[in-house]
């Protein structure tokens, strides 16, 4: 009896496997025959942060414009998952990869693998580990120069408000971009005569956390005259804390990134300066570079995008509006 049961199970399993094989065998060539377009895969470090979603939007729209298929993947902030995604993308037969790596240090094995397979790869947001050369292009923000420029802006803001002490709401300092922002800002503060009294780092990049940190900053250092935000939610959190304390206009705020929320706050005079980081633009430019590589056109190895400053006075200029359209998609909110 047990023998027959085992036999029946074996037959059922064999039939199931055969059905799957026949179906896959029938459909796959048909799919291949109808789909000759090139495919670009975008591997994001995570999609819980708007920034990476906006890069994805840039990749997707540019891919559509160039007649490419688009595949999106997320690495959930894990180098292991990132590597698995790359393998999966290769199995799916993608022609090129645009990646926002989990970290710069996670990139060497990815680059080794893609170099072996001759698949072009472009970086967005975070670049490859220094010393790596086997990549098509790296489209990143110039965080160091922006850090310097924002440092000067924030210092002048503090001086205009009658002091020279400033506080900072920082991205986690284990990130290369955060370190570059901080390095640039510190150099500017030293050169311009401002005192950076405290740097508080975020863990979750939420507004709620930034409100608490801004409150702590203001409690610990009531004499600060300006707050340097390194990410969008920092500025929104700082504005909320200042509103509660009746300090809007008495303490200045500037930040990097840009979103519908911070642009609204800029227009209302709650934020004085915004250094726009072109998330969508990074996706567009990176996709263009891998497309160029696939079609034999010239590529640009390193594209450090500037983060231009916009203020309440310049926000509606054609130049600023064109830049904002490269920051976030229309679905995120008003420009």
């Amino acid at each position: 009896m047990a023998y027959f049961m085992s036999l029946r199970r074996l037959l059922a399993a064999a039939t199931a496997v055969a059905c799957v094989a026949v179906t896959a065998g029938t459909l796959a060539p048909a799919a291949r025959a109808t789909d000759k377009k090139m495919t670009v895969a975008y591997v994001a470090p995570s999609l819980d942060i708007s920034y990476w979603q906006w890069v994805a939007y840039g990749v997707q729209t540019e891919a559509a414009k160039l007649g490419m298929n688009y595949v999106g993947m997320t690495s959930e902030n894990s180098p292991g998952t990132q590597m698995n995604n790359i393998h999966t993308a290769l199995v799916r037969g993608v022609n090129a990869i645009v990646i926002g790596p989990v970290s710069s240090s996670s990139t060497p094995p990815v680059l080794r693998l893609l170099a072996q397979r001759h698949v072009p790869i472009a970086f967005t947001g975070i670049g490859p580990q220094p010393g790596q050369t086997d990549y098509t292009s790296a489209v990143t923000a110039n965080n160091y120069e922006t850090g310097k420029a924002e440092g000067t802006f924030v210092c002048n803001l503090a001086k205009a408000l009658g002091g020279n002490k400033v506080g900072m709401l920082s991205l986690p300092q284990d990130r290369e971009n955060a370190q570059k922002y901080l390095k640039g800002a510190k150099e500017s503060f030293a050169a311009d005569g401002c005192d950076l009294v405290q740097v508080l780092q975020t863990h979750g990049l939420t507004v709620n956390e930034a409100v608490q940190e801004a409150n702590d900053l203001l409690t610990g250092h009531p004499d600060i005259k300006a707050i340097y935000g390194m990410y969008d939610e920092a500025a929104t959190g700082a504005v909320k804390a200042l509103q509660t304390r009746g300090l809007i206009g008495k303490i200045g705020v500037a930040t990097a990134d840009g979103s519908p929320e911070t642009i609204k706050e800029l227009r209302q005079g709650e934020i004085q300066g915004l250094f726009l980081q072109e998330a969508v633009g990074q996706g567009i430019d990176a996709t263009q570079q891998v497309y160029n590589a696939l079609t034999g056109k010239p590529v640009t190895k390193d594209i450090p995008l500037a983060e231009p400053l916009v203020t309440k006075e310049t926000i509606d200029s054609p130049q600023a509006q064109a830049t904002i359209k490269r920051v976030y998609p229309p679905s995120a909110g008003a420009f």
Partner: peptide, 13 residues
Amino acid sequence: SYISNAEGTAGAA
């Protein structure tokens, strides 16, 4: 109500 903002990661921690 406090922060006048809703975020997808608000409760992560």
